[in-house]
Write a protein that binds this DNA or RNA. Structure first.
Lengths: 345, 345
DNA sequence: CTGAAAGCGCTAACAA
DNA sequence: TTGTTAGCGCTTTCAG
């Protein structure tokens, strides 16, 4: 077991005191030490293969250089891009990302967050916020800089990096109207989370602005942003007997659930019913039929969340202010084969 | 900013010395302290909401309670289950998982590993091993317990938790033969990684044991386990002019690439050519046509890798011995619509 | 069984 | 510009 090189080794090898070595090695304080000495220390450190011990440093500086991120569901293909985007930005600044998932369960969320806090993460990125989300006491007390991503809450002033869902829903509604659809249903995601509620409100607004009545009977809510929940919700819609020629689903997974429900009843997509999704998940272009959906730059979203957090980390006083993240990310419509002209009435 | 409770606070509140408090709080040493005293310390700690500082502890005990995991591609749906399985097992034991991806690039892999090592991870789980993989010097020197998952190497004695690819390929070959196929092609993954090479060898062996010649012309190698690479490789196969009625793809992504290549030439799946995949990725059951593939318990694989690592962590002397992980995980065949009877010759 | 004291590797006053 | 001196919060000898 090769022995580990410590700062003391570097210092003695370079013939200086450890504090001088420390200063020489830290770019922030390097200016304070003699150029020639600094050069020598750097050279020795390099030669010995010195690696600062993050724990020792952190113990002093009271930071771990780790950021915690909580996602609702590791298996949902929506999150890897967000995660990857954040990770890349953070790593550039020397931070590592610790990930946890909470299965979209607020109770579990609290436990995961506690575990992260116990590890003294310097900041938190939450992709799991429920609208009624309340920060655990620990988070309030310790004031860990936190940013929300993808979802937001209405109760708190936490910076949130999200997509412009109102615009996104506008895109699909107008697309559908352009195809001649008038009776358009909406299978929403859980309206306890912002993406569910905002999309639902946007749907009503856009229907209205297109001069179409958003009949209450045409809106049903899925319990979760999952295929099975979408399937069940769509079943309810179908059972209710209202007629419609298109479905705007709360996200791609729910849309897939609608596929299942529709197919089970022998309805064809898009000949009988057009379906749209939201997110443009990986491989959603390969399902049968390829799904018309709304695409968002998720990797960029993760990166933006990381940047926002980095700013908060730098200016501690911003911590609980509303840091205004850059404008909402703009969605784009991806037209595939799940939408077509409204069947002749 | 509520002040953070330290061991000193607990000790003074309980009227004991910090070292006594430390002993009382640590299950391993609790027996050495008076039951009554221990109880009091525990109670105070609980009441004050004391949380040990992991950095301080780690600095003493020389462990970080973090494990690093490197995957080739965060976006590949194959890895989230492995990751999730490992994370759950590790968290049970108080470890956290730090994840990194290397885009299957050995150079990048080294950088990511260095970053992880710099953070003093207690162990490493690598899902990225190339067959010619050489441990970076740091890993050898510092002897960080390491386990391989999903892939293995041939040069080193590192424990590896992998699936039984030979059996898996046997499953698809026999399935295809059972459907009457005789001219079966194989689009392999990169044979520089074990999953690519083992499957390729298994293919030859099983063809042979079925009494079919595995013609060299029927085997082409994709550059990567990705759709585009599969597409390109399948194009080469098609261009070569050999005739075949089925393709065994190295994994699901490559199979999807074959779909593309076949479809472009107006070939129908499975009427003209049957295609099989490997992995049973999320949503691969929803592509068009649903892919016949080999399923492996990936979540369990991640958990097994974590368990193996945990054992190594406990018995340091095992570090570079061959820890024999439990038997290879057994695959199962999932028959869907991408395979059908061989077209009448 | 418990207290005293040392020290993990590093940074940050404070002196010189 | 550099060295001295304290610790960060915890575990672990070593005495008592």
């Amino acid at each position: 077991m090769a022995q580990v090189i410590t700062l003391k080794d570097v210092a003695s090898e370079a013939g200086v005191h450890v504090s001088t070595a420390s200063r020489a090695l830290n770019p922030e304080t390097r200016s304070v030490v003699n150029d020639e000495t600094a050069g020598r220390v750097l050279a020795v450190a390099e030669r010995l293969g010195y690696r600062p011990h993050p724990l020792a440093r952190g113990l002093r500086t009271n930071q771990t250089l780790t950021i915690g991120m909580i996602v609702p569901d590791l298996m949902n293909p929506l999150f890897p891009p967000i995660y990857a985007g954040a990770e890349a930005s953070l790593r550039d600044k020397g931070y590592s990302l610790l990930i946890g998932n909470d299965d979209d369960d607020p109770v579990k969320a609290k436990a995961v967050m506690a575990a992260l806090l116990e590890r003294r993460v310097d900041g938190l990125i939450l992709a799991t916020a429920h609208l009624d989300f309340a920060l655990p006491a620990a988070l309030n007390q310790e004031m860990v800089p936190t940013v929300l991503v993808n979802r937001t809450t209405d109760s708190m002033a936490l910076p949130a990096v999200i997509g412009d869902d109102d615009a996104g829903i506008g895109l699909v509604v107008r697309h559908l109207v352009g195809l001649g659809h008038a009776a358009i249903a909406h299978v929403t995601g859980p309206t306890a989370v912002s993406t569910g509620r905002i999309r639902r409100e946007a749907f009503a607004r856009w229907m209205d602005s297109e001069g179409l009545a958003a009949e209450p009977a045409l809106v049903v809510e899925a319990d979760a942003f999952r295929t099975e929940a979408g399937h069940a919700a769509c079943d309810r819609l179908l059972d209710s007997g209202v007629s419609f020629t298109a479905i705007v689903a709360g996200n791609d997974l729910i849309a897939l659930g609608c596929y299942d429900a529709l197919t089970e009843r022998g309805l064809s997509i898009p000949d009988d019913v057009s379906v749209t999704g939201y997110n443009d998940m990986t491989f959603i272009d390969r399902v049968n039929p390829p799904l018309t959906t709304v695409s968002l730059p998720y990797e960029q979203m993760g990166a933006a969340a990381a940047q926002t957090l980095l700013v908060m980390l730098e200016f501690e006083e911003w911590q609980h202010d509303v840091v205004d993240p850059s404008a909402k990310l703009q969605p784009s419509l991806v037209v595939r084969d799940s939408t077509g002209p409204a069947p002749a009435g």
